[in-house]
Amino acid sequence: MSEQFEPTIVGFTCNWCSYRAADLAGMSRIKYAPNVRLIRLMCSGRVDPQFVFKALAEGADGVLISGCHPGDCHYVEQNYKTMRRFALLKMTLAALGIEDARVKLVWASAAEGNILAEEIDKMVAEVKALGPLNWKGDRRPKTEDGRVPSSVIGHRSVVEGVAV
């Protein structure tokens, strides 16, 4: 291995609590791991299991789902539905051999920028320990001599010898 592995994580946040927690983390200048790329949805209830599989299939090493605390959902009770759906999703993921720590559900209110940042740091460390998922192998395009073209960037460094 030439360099340390940096995981890439896709995060889904609700619009009302967790995306605002990310806003607050920014306003408070809390530094956290840069590995998470957030996608805003209106509610954690919008997270379709397809999105999680899609992210993992596209090369993400983990998926974070974040919404309002139970009881505080902007849409009254939809995060309870997220909770139920998440339990099913976890069973499917386990059956597919995807480690528990790779897909996480985290509650963060609009006042909890620090908690979101902490959870992200924690998750990044855990996924880093697990190593790359490479669910479908290293899918980055290669030039003829097997290098990744320089136009294909990202702070994820190549793990030589591991990539399929």
Binding site: A60, R140, V152
Partner: peptide, 20 residues
Amino acid sequence: IMAQIEGVLFDLNVQGAREE
């Protein structure tokens, strides 16, 4: 949303990189 997932994983994702 699917397109955005592909997009944020541009650096890892074959299709986006190909297009590019």
